[in-house]
Structures are given as structure tokens and as C-alpha cells.
């Protein structure tokens, strides 16, 4: 993967007429890198099985779910276990979220006032699910640091909301490994500049020929000891699905 990057840099350098002997030190474009990281994690479309472990002060639980995504706008998540909740599904299409509740056989649309509420009891909000994909649109991205951290070459990005963006964060920080474009962590700060939560990525694993972090761990800083961990067990990319897959009919289908 790195080789491809070098080749690409060379091509760019050649095309721009800069026939130098050290093409790789060209200043990287932060937006391009973030876009690339995002694409790595998601692909054009994907399907996977993951377990989500939620630990709170009051309870712990584990949910296994199957998830599909298409681009940044569409995704579908269906709970497989525990049995009591199997079939419960969430559909995200553009900025909307619907939940299907198999027990009562009803679909409900999450009202905009509840988008800040927890998704399936986790530390992710409904908003996270639809917003996470829009970092590049909503934020100005700059490289805050590039170089060695703990023996690895990394980039650290600082994302500040664009003035017109309706976002809840004051700013975000991202650390990405230069070697393989793997994200290491992202930190979310509120408007007072306080760290609100951290997402850590680990266990970089190859799924369908693509290296991705298999584990994502979210820790809210206002609730020490609590966390939500998502672990991918299966993941495949670039499936033959289109927007029509992400329909309310599909949401209600119980496999």
C-alpha cells in the first residue's frame, strides 16, 4: 500500500513538472489523508459482523450485529444476539434514523430532538451514526503534527468546525499512522476545549485484502470506567448493493 502511495506521489510530481529526486517529501494534503482513512474503514460499500460491548456504571452487555453500509449516507444494522433483541434494526439513510422493533413489529423514526440520545444503550449517540461520516464536510482539517511518536511516524490532525456546520464538538484531534494510514485514536473536545471522549483504534487486521482496525474503543471522559467497544468479526467490501437495499422493507426483514 505504501508503494502505491510513492508511485502516486511520483506521478503527481512528474505531472507537475517537478522532476526532483526526492518526491516523497511533498507536503501531504490533510483533507486527502482524512478522506483516505475514511475510505479505508468504510469502502464504497461494506458488510460486516461485529460485537458491541457496552460497560456502564450500572450494567454490562454485549450485542452481536450485522451491518451494511453504502458510501457515507446509508447504513443498516441488525442485532443478531442476544436472542431477546435479535431482529432489532437501525436504518440510517442520509440524516434520518429509523429503528425497527421486532417485539412490537413497528418501525419508529427517531425525532430530531432525540438524535443526541444513546444508540442501543451504547456511548454512541444517534447523531454519531449519521454525522461521523461527514467529518470532511463539516470540519476544517489541518496537520498539527507530523513526525515520530513512540517510534512510529504519525500525523496528528486538528479538526475545527466550519462556521456554518451544525456540529456539537468544539474541535477534534486525530492521530493517523503514516505507514499504513491506520487511525490510532480520535479525541473529541467540547466548546470549552475539554476532552469529552476518546476513540481508540487497535488490532489492525486484514479483512478481504484490506487492513482495518478491528477494534474501536470509545471512552466517555465524564463517566470514568465506562466504555463501548466494537470488534469486527467479519468484514467485506465493495458489495453489489445500491441505495434500494437501504429501505424500510429491508429494515423490517428478520433474516
Amino acid at each position: 500500500m505504501r508503494r502505491r502511495e510513492i508511485v502516486r506521489a511520483l506521478v503527481v510530481a512528474l505531472a507537475s513538472g517537478a522532476l526532483t529526486v526526492t518526491p516523497v517529501v511533498a507536503q501531504p494534503d490533510p483533507v486527502e489523508i482524512m478522506e483516505r482513512v475514511d475510505r479505508l474503514l468504510r469502502g464504497d460499500s461494506s458488510r460486516g459482523v461485529a460485537t458491541m460491548e457496552v460497560v456502564t456504571e450500572n450494567w454490562e452487555r454485549e450485542i452481536t450485529m450485522e451491518m451494511w453500509s453504502l458510501g457515507t449516507e446509508f447504513s443498516l444494522v441488525r442485532v443478531q444476539a442476544p436472542a431477546r433483541e435479535a431482529g432489532t434494526a437501525t436504518l440510517m439513510a442520509e440524516d434520518n434514523i429509523w429503528n425497527y422493533l421486532p417485539k412490537v413489529e413497528r418501525t419508529i423514526k427517531i425525532p430530531s430532538s432525540m438524535m443526541g440520545g444513546s444508540w442501543m444503550g451504547s456511548h454512541f449517540t444517534n447523531d454519531d451514526l449519521v454525522r461521523e461520516s461527514q467529518l470532511i464536510e463539516d470540519y476544517d482539517i489541518e496537520i498539527a503534527f507530523a513526525g515520530d511518536r513512540d517510534g512510529d511516524d504519525v500525523w496528528e490532525f486538528r479538526l475545527t468546525p466550519k462556521s456554518e456546520a451544525a456540529v456539537i464538538w468544539g474541535h477534534l484531534e486525530f492521530r493517523v499512522q503514516q505507514l499504513d494510514y491506520m487511525p490510532l485514536w480520535s479525541r473529541f473536545y467540547n466548546e470549552d476545549g475539554e476532552l469529552v471522549r476518546t476513540m481508540e483504534y487497535s488490532e489492525f487486521t486484514e479483512f478481504a485484502g484490506r487492513l482495518v482496525p478491528a477494534v474501536m474503543d470509545m471512552q466517555p471522559h465524564d463517566k470514568p470506567g465506562e466504555r463501548t467497544t466494537i470488534r469486527y468479526e467479519e468484514l467485506e467490501f465493495d458489495l453489489d448493493i445500491d441505495e434500494s437495499f437501504f429501505s424500510l422493507q429491508r429494515l423490517q426483514r428478520r433474516r
Binding site: V54, T56, N58, W59, E60, R61, R84, E85, T88, N99, L101, K103, V104, R106, I108, S118, M120, G121
Partner: peptide, 16 residues
């Protein structure tokens, strides 16, 4: 009416 709430065990409690 469908009512959905967070259960004390973390489940997505819902009923008709």
C-alpha cells in the same frame, strides 16, 4: 402507541 425506553439493564425496552 409504541413506547421505547432505555431499560435498567441497558436493553432497548419497548412495548405496545
Amino acid at each position: 402507541l409504541v413506547v421505547v425506553a432505555s431499560g435498567a439493564d441497558g436493553s432497548m425496552a419497548n412495548d405496545l
